[in-house]
């Protein structure tokens, strides 16, 4: 995918997201805009069929749905059922419906332990059957989510079991449910802390798929027994100026005027 094509994709997936949220009159818009570029870099551009991808910040389900729509697993017609009664696409993912959603999460702090289990299974498989150590477990978390104690239980597990086939993607936008990360508990997704624990950590611009993709490629060549963390420095609500870095857009739905305004901005910025 060329750089221009990637930018167009960043725009078109944002467009789909806004359309879905507007039609559903739903919140969590800014949460999806924050991590959509990270999902393009990982799920769309780097995940192989043998890899697993888990969206641990399940409240950004719409971003997962538009990516799976792009890869062909979710149809346009299914996408239109988002939030509607009788849908397979609720606000947080539903289990047992799509291969691309191996784990349906929403309560925070569940994805990392599960991804550790998948990475550990891949390590065990490689000893008994066809080598699958090259299969990666990706898990996408929010920085607020790293407040959860399971992050630290799982982090120690990952280091102890040398899960260098685990790639943790942290959508670090500095805003959580009811305040900035500094106001709430401080930075629980701190690079130094993670390095000291035993992770290999890289930081990247969370809205530059090329830069994030490079980090993922580097991780894959680094079979050093260290689990990987990519801290994606993001802006909550990225792409729509009046939503950027605004806590309220974690929750607010768009009215007709905001939606129209947002779509115009996307066209200007991404040409989509």
């Amino acid at each position: 995918m060329t750089k221009t094509e990637t930018v167009r994709l960043q725009g078109s997936l944002r467009h789909s997201l806004l359309k879905m949220y507007h039609s559903a009159n739903a919140g969590h818009v800014a949460c999806s805009l924050s991590c959509i570029d990270l999902m393009i870099a990982s799920l769309i551009q780097h995940k192989k069929t043998t890899d697993s991808f888990i969206l641990s910040k399940g409240h950004a389900a719409a971003s997962l749905y538009v990516c799976l729509n792009y890869t062909g697993e979710i149809s346009d017609a299914q996408l239109e059922t988002f939030y509607k009664n009788g849908t397979s696409l609720p606000a947080h993912p539903a289990a047992n419906k799509f291969q691309g959603i191996p784990f349906a999460l929403g309560s925070l702090g569940h994805g990392l332990p599960i991804a550790c289990g998948i990475a550990k299974a891949n390590k065990l498989h490689s000893k008994t059957g066809p080598a699958s150590d090259s299969a990666y477990a990706y898990v996408l978390m929010s920085d607020g989510e790293t407040n959860e104690g399971t992050t630290w239980e799982a982090a120690h597990f990952a280091v102890r079991h040398q899960l260098d086939n685990l790639i943790v993607l942290i959508d670090k936008n500095g805003l959580q449910g009811f305040g900035t990360t500094d106001q709430v508990l401080g930075d629980t997704a701190d690079e130094t802390q993670l390095i000291n624990l035993g992770f290999e950590v890289k930081q990247a611009d969370g809205h530059n798929p090329g830069e994030m993709g490079k980090a993922i490629e580097d991780f894959k060549t680094s079979k050093n027994g260290k689990p990987k963390v990519l801290i994606a420095n993001t802006v909550k609500g990225k792409g729509v100026s009046f939503m950027e870095n605004k806590l309220e857009w974690h929750y607010l739905p768009m009215d007709a005027a905001s939606y129209a305004h947002a779509i115009v901005e996307l066209k200007e910025k991404y040409g989509a």
């Binding site: 697993s52 191996p102 784990f103 332990p113 599960i114 550790c116 289990g117 998948i118 299974a121």
Partner: peptide, 8 residues
């Protein structure tokens, strides 16, 4: 959680 990942 690890058990769920392994079982998957």
């Amino acid at each position: 959680g690890v058990a769920a990942g392994l079982a998957h």
